[in-house]
């Protein structure tokens, strides 16, 4: 059921604006803005993933870079094996790399899902600050592993050289690649909206507010939280796989704790728990980065000020500012 609230209207405008961006860029003969718009769409997917855990489940994960990076490495490793014609595994059976995006996405989802299952299983035994820190710790483990593991480039990272392929689409064409990211973004937003409005989502929100009450009606918050954490991680990994394809490059940088912080920034800048929050957040972040980055070498100082301003004075982020407080059903 779509009610035409102020927020829904705003969401439509945002989606259309993002969709229009590359076409405007083409009209202005500024192809770089297509890349920027693609970047926004891809990073927004990561934000949508984290938003599910953070906004809906109240799970403040400070380690989502782990999943973002795992998605990226899934793409990078599979593609590099395919391009070098070296099987990933020769015994007991032969396993080859691939440049098919669909396969890569599937592997990224699978790997990150398993990782999240493991990490979540241990982390969700804790709560509050402990949860924040243990997710950070797991991400740091993977980060240091990636830096020092020599097989896939270590700190130098891994170049893909050619963009992976999707049947029926020319992925090297910037607008086509943008459309892939855009469609996936819309799909994950739709998916998270469905979760939000489902019985599962209701249970999740109830668990955030009161553990015991939920347990008395026979629902175990642990299972619900773990499921949410895994789904959230998988969406973020999908974004990582696309990000690798956008840059034609993966590196441990994608796994660093700064990346976890940035994904969190997208969510909060836009508005925690808001469907389109991560889209606005990612767009704003990229804008600050590319506009201020060209003006002053102290641009991160200004980024800090903007962030601080949003946290202190614009609770609910940009969407909250524009569309007012979230209406609870």
């Amino acid at each position: 059921m779509v009610r035409l609230s102020k927020e829904n209207g705003l969401n439509c405008v945002l989606a259309l604006a993002l969709l229009a961006a590359p076409f405007v860029a083409t009209a202005l003969d500024e192809p770089f803005y297509i890349t920027l718009a693609t970047r926004v769409a891809i990073l927004a997917i990561a934000g949508v993933g984290l938003n599910l855990a953070l906004g809906l489940g109240g799970l403040v994960s400070f380690g989502h870079a782990a999943f973002f990076g795992l998605g990226g490495y899934a793409a990078g490793i599979l593609a590099s094996h395919a391009l070098n014609y070296e099987p990933i595994l020769s015994s007991p059976f032969e396993l080859n790399g691939t440049t098919q995006m669909l396969v890569i996405w599937f592997v990224a989802l699978l790997v990150s899902g398993l990782a999240a299952l493991l990490i979540g299983f241990f982390s969700l035994r804790t709560s509050g600050v402990y949860f924040i820190m243990i997710t950070l710790a797991f991400a740091q483990m993977i980060y240091y592993f990636a830096i020092s593991w020599p097989a896939y480039g270590g700190e130098d990272g891994l170049s893909i050289y050619v963009r992976n392929v999707l049947p029926g689409v020319n992925t090297m064409d910037p607008i086509s690649f943008f459309m892939i990211a855009f469609v996936l973004l819309m799909l994950v937003i739709l998916f998270s909206s469905m979760i939000k409005n489902s019985r599962f989502g209701a249970a999740l929100q109830a668990a955030r507010q009161n553990d015991e009450r939920l347990a008395t009606v026979g629902i175990h918050p642990f299972g619900i939280r773990l499921t949410t954490f895994v789904i959230s991680a998988m969406i973020t990994a999908l974004s990582g796989a696309l990000f690798a394809d956008l840059n034609r490059f993966v590196s441990p940088d994608m796994l660093a704790w700064h990346m976890s912080g940035e994904i969190m920034v997208f969510v909060i800048l836009g508005g925690v728990g808001r469907l389109f929050g991560p889209v606005v957040g990612a767009a704003l972040f990229i804008l600050i980065e590319s506009v201020f980055g060209g003006i002053s070498e102290y641009w991160m100082f200004y980024l800090g000020l903007v962030l601080l301003g949003v946290v202190l004075y614009a609770r609910g982020g940009v969407i909250g500012f524009l569309a007012g407080k979230e209406k609870h059903d």
Partner: peptide
């Protein structure tokens, strides 16, 4: 505020202090 706001605001402070 909740921990989330604290993490973010102090993350912003890191950037401001460093630069």
């Amino acid at each position: 505020r909740d921990h989330l706001d604290q993490v973010l605001a102090t993350f912003a402070l890191i950037l401001i202090f460093s630069e």
